[in-house]
Design a protein around this nucleic acid. Structure first.
Lengths: 192, 192, 192, 192
DNA sequence: TATGAATGAGGGTTCATTCAT
DNA sequence: TATGAATGAACCCTCATTCAT
């Protein structure tokens, strides 16, 4: 049992910064985003940011964590559904529902992965892990469907999502996501 | 004997810069790349770069043009093949052959599209056009195969490539590209 | 007893920069003056200047404001004198007293007006307003003297000053200012 | 067919450059004007400028000479008039006729004097000489009118012109020049 | 003479990070 | 803890001047 968790630091300020970072980094990109941008979005004085995060990289890391946490929540909700097909299709529906955001800024984890790859820090590993979690989960679903090529199918599914996210974003065309989502749905049905 | 077209302008210096830009921007990303980086890669003094390109953005544009030109060449070569299936599979093979480069730096056009989207310049439109050319070409192939859902299939194919490029890059796993390429090959065969 | 307004911000640093700008810009001219010049004159690190002024133009603007403020102070002092003739003559004496500075660098507002006119920013309007204030004040004095051509006389007076400032500066001849000042004094006496 | 006067250098190219320099420097100011600007205005390739003028300063000098030459021509024309009053009034009329140009760019020699004063080169002396010529000429006219304060009057006249030019330019108000010109005319009449 | 191209020094500006309180 | 202010390295870009032909 954890006792109380000594709270001297303003409650949630760190979380507010992480959430702001996740959002602003998604919208503007890592390089285009200033610490001041994030601080402003979180309504925290610039100088104070460094009390919670020693470097900009740590803030990016926190944003990745936020994405990971969000992914876990999504997966948790999906797991409540009865069949793997239901779960996968619900995932697709979630993607489709986010199509407007995706058209504007791309997939949050995908664009982050793309950006962080060009940097020397170890942050690319962190974001890779997040995507890995999603792939692993998808693999489990396909396995539950009795497929022995579950890994390959999982890769194909996530790749399809990442790819169409990029196209949706590039052409600012949310309908691309809808169409591809529907196509993937039919594809899943065809696998049983 | 080559005819004596007096070459005052150092021959191809502009092209050398554009090519260097295309490469370095791919490897390092747009924001991480300095003009000095490009200048060095092209072995051109920094100040001289501005004789050929008035801004950094123009250099990025030139890099995009270089990618477009390269794409046209690739497509031109593919068009020499007899059947649309042959042409599409040859495209897949090209992607697979480039898997090491993709694992290191991602798809040149895809990462560029992702990055440029976060910027205010009109460069995102330029890279969008390049990708559009590829989609259009793929659409023609599926059409030649007698499919009336050729557009959707084209999107699916290019999205699959972009997506698996991102994963290949994120996990530094060239094999992902190989596996997905093979899968797409079977998929194409199944469409006839 | 001074109230204890806690001074975190280095007191008057912004003002120090503005004052330094006013002086250095006057001495060297706007284009010839580097931000580093102003920073050095104010004993402020270059990078820190941007904490107070986002662009060089803003610094120029601050310098103009400083001139405006100074002008208001001068006018305020003059207004304490009994008759308009006294006030105008006191103005002339002020010009004469500054003759050495004028010989070296010209009239602060005049040279600034001349320079800023050749630029695309709206700064020319700002300096115009400063000069307008002086003209308006002079007009009031002539009006108080009962002249119905007060506006024309005001223009003539300020023009005479600006013109002789330019000659004083061009020929590095402070005596020109003295002589013209005396002449203008007689002219004012002749107007009653 | 005239041979004479060995013409190897393109005839008048140097003059064209000097004239272009005079105009562009007046319009844009010395610091804001690049060599390329002048070269373009004279329709001469940039590299070729240096065959005629070794430095930018020499071009400025040439522009000053052009102004000097122009002034001599003006004075020459004025000297044809019968009385000194006529001559001085004709000078005033010339100023009034140029009021639109003055409103846009100020007095060509005055603005140049103002700018060159802030520079370390000896060019300020050159422009000072030009203005001196005008003052000397005016002095002669007042002398011919029998005034023993001719020098002071000359200074007053030229100062009035320079000053009102600055105001005309600052306020973009050509009418200021007209009004002050008329006033000076009455003043001259009053001196006899 | 003529000319496109080359060169390098310097200027304005941004921003992650640190400091002092 | 909290915060405004400070710092300096680096970047993009301009331009007078020089070079090579």
């Amino acid at each position: 049992m954890t006792h109380s968790k000594s709270v001297r630091r303003s409650p949630g300020k760190r979380e507010r910064l992480a959430a702001a970072a996740a959002q602003v980094l998604h919208e503007q990109g890592v390089e285009q985003t200033t610490l001041a941008d994030i601080a402003r979005a979180a309504d925290v004085p610039v100088g104070n940011v460094y009390y919670y995060f020693k470097t900009k990289n740590e803030l990016v890391e926190a944003a990745i964590d936020a994405h990971a946490q969000n992914l876990r929540a999504v997966i948790g909700a999906l797991d409540a559904l009865p069949t793997p097909q239901d779960r996968l299709k619900a995932l697709l529906n979630g993607w489709i529902e986010q199509r407007e955001l995706t058209a504007q800024y791309g997939c949050p984890t995908g664009t982050l992965a793309s950006e962080l790859d060009k940097r020397a820090d170890g942050l690319d590993q962190a974001i890779a892990k997040v995507i890995q979690v999603l792939i692993d989960w998808a693999e489990q679903q396909f396995q539950a469907m009795g497929r022995d090529d579950s890994r390959e199918l999982a890769i194909a599914l996530i790749a399809a999502y990442q790819g169409v996210s990029l196209l949706t974003n590039t052409f600012r065309a949310p309908d691309l996501m809808t169409a591809e989502g529907r196509r993937l749905e039919r594809w899943i049905d065809s696998l049983t």
